[in-house]
Design a protein around this nucleic acid. Structure first.
Lengths: 370, 370
DNA sequence: TTGAAAGCGATACCAG
DNA sequence: CTGGTATCGCTTTCAA
């Protein structure tokens, strides 16, 4: 019953071979005969070998280069994601991590170019936001084939062979939005709207679906209108909402699933029904704060970008350390921010910033993943 | 601009002394002259020395013994905390951790006895729930003096010298409960009740205070009744609530801040006003599920016990690795669970369980800290 | 293709 | 009190 953990040495002597060979077999390097490799693998399994990460990090000389390909964004969302990655990298038990942040301001080809470059440069890992999952899939496959682990953040790229995913649960988000909308509206009947980026994006379609189903199931007196697609364009969001507000006299509430809630709020204000509408938004950023405080926004569904960044790095590091393995999927529950608990979240954000400046020497506690 | 990290060796040769001496100086062991110690400390600072955790974990031979002193509890809350500790310990980059779970079914002296034993046995660290913070303070001080780091979970023990705290933000919890209560009740006026363990517990007093203030600020038409104290006794909760329900004809809602929500629900049912009351509860456990599903409980404030357990271990490990330092406080945002997103949380819980059984060999991904 | 050996940066000894 | 050295488990290089 001794808890002795098996080491490379153990399995080497069990096979009457050398620790070097065992190591090579375990890392399928080209220079090892298929038979020995098979033997080693079998022995490793039967002995319950699990690599000692501390030893691995300690002895490994190569410094990890990982690229983070993300949007510039119009809010602080993506900045927060990047901050999260940085924080987690700083507190990781490994010294040489080079983070290479590639930020582009618009979706499109640049993204693929950046990704391709990373693969060609043979970086050690990639954290990416696959804005157009289908278009992106082949690129990820290519990286995977080159044995470069790719972790998707915020949006998934299904069937791409990605080694990890970090995102907020979209069903839970849509459902809770509907639930709150229904409760907040109480006995009122009427119609409810939803804005999203594009129905073609899985995550947005899922939020919409969950919102719709939950509304139907529990609040059938509320009628859901056709979704408003803004395609990430503030102007489009504004114009379409103005039209919507004029055409739907019985509109009671609107759920904004994208980060472009400011134009929607402005449209509501200009249409003089800012406080007659129950507005539910997504995420939390400086420009949104006064609207939450004033009660114009009833609740915002916070997707915890910093935690997403942290988890993305963790997932990537895990794959780097363990060398492959099955895909790791991390699904976060969103946070709900209202007037009442707004200060709690703001305080936390400012604390990060301060402390970001104060101690550049990383190492600070692993935050809180709240 | 070379990023060379300074090692013990570096600072040793800078001072023309030995690596052993440097090591001792850095760990203020008794056997080192004050002057050398000062020199080493200065050199370490100026060279920007930061210990390499991987090396530390690797070379340290002593296996960490840590005790976790927690309640049995009437719900799964404390089990979840323990599970969280276990999970995080399994995925930590360190091999020899002996977790010693000491569970007691009631508050009181046994708790102090258990704690004292741990200190006497010179364990390496303690995770504890200080049910009576004031009584407990001296015990924690004693542990601290013996250089045993103590991390408090769920409840704080202020001014005790504890090296860490992991808890849910109570102000945010109370405030969001009030906010939701106010919104859910819409135009209705009337009175609102709150149950808590005991006003003497800081956390409970804070929840009450935040609930009260938020209600007054934004929903002044709702009158808050005197709090019901249940002292952790189901029977007491039931009886007091029955009385409350009879005496307050205009009662509209009740916020249960403790884990004893089942007796409150039963009381409401027996008084035949289960669905006339807006009930907000705390935490999530099997017995509560049907009541959420049926809509009897409008929302429950989930204190994320598993995450609390994980973070408690992380905090403790950090202090163990870094050898002291200032206290680390982790404040979590609670999750809100309603009918709409209930399945998301249940699914996640069952996934844990399954996977608990399946892979006992730890190492699984760091969960999600959701 | 395989074996042997030199580190990585700390800890924990044992001599002096 | 201080200096030296074996050791932890793995990666990496150099010979065989």
């Amino acid at each position: 019953m001794t808890k002795k953990t098996t080491t490379l040495h153990d399995i080497a002597k069990a096979l009457n071979t050398s620790i070097g060979t065992v190591h090579r077999a375990l890392h399928d390097s080209p220079d090892v005969s298929p038979e020995t490799k098979a033997k080693v693998l079998r022995a490793a399994k039967s002995l319950g070998y699990r690599p000692n990460l501390a030893a691995r990090f300690l002895s490994s000389k190569k410094s990890l280069r990982i690229t983070i390909n993300t949007l510039q964004g119009t809010t602080s969302f993506w900045d927060d994601i990047r901050t999260g990655v940085q924080e987690e990298a700083a507190s990781a038990p490994i010294e040489n991590v080079d983070l290479d942040f590639k930020t582009y301001s618009h979706l499109g080809e640049l993204q693929e170019e950046v990704f391709e470059n990373a693969v060609r440069d043979r970086v050690d890992g990639i954290i990416t936001f696959p804005s157009h999952p289908k278009t992106f899939r082949p690129w990820i496959r290519r990286a995977t084939r080159a044995r470069i682990p790719v972790v998707c953040a915020v949006t998934d790229a299904p069937d791409s062979g990605r080694s990890g995913l970090v995102a907020v649960d979209t069903h839970a988000s849509g459902a809770i939005a509907a639930e709150l909308m229904g409760k907040f509206l109480g006995e009122q009947a009427g119609s409810v709207a939803i804005t999203l980026f594009d129905r073609a994006i899985t995550e947005h379609a899922e939020k919409f679906g969950a919102f719709e189903r939950t509304l139907q199931a529990y609040y059938p007196r509320l009628r859901l209108l056709e979704p408003v697609e803004d395609h990430g364009m503030a102007a489009e969001a504004y114009t379409k909402c103005r039209t919507l507000f004029e055409e739907s006299a019985d509109l009671r509430g609107i759920y904004v699933t994208t980060e472009d809630s400011i134009p929607v709020i402005k449209a509501a204000k200009d249409a003089k029904l800012l406080h007659r509408l129950t507005i539910i938004t997504t995420d939390l950023f400086p420009d949104l704060v006064p609207h939450i405080r004033s009660g114009a926004v009833a609740v915002t569904i916070y997707q915890r970008p910093r935690t997403q960044g942290r988890m993305a790095f963790r997932v990537l590091l895990k794959h780097l350390a363990e060398g492959g393995g099955r895909s790791t999927e991390v699904t976060l529950a969103p946070h709900l921010v209202m007037r009442g608990n707004l200060d709690f979240f703001l305080q936390r954000q400012s604390k990060e910033t301060t402390h970001e400046k104060a101690s550049r020497n990383g190492g600070e506690m692993a935050g809180d993943f709240s």
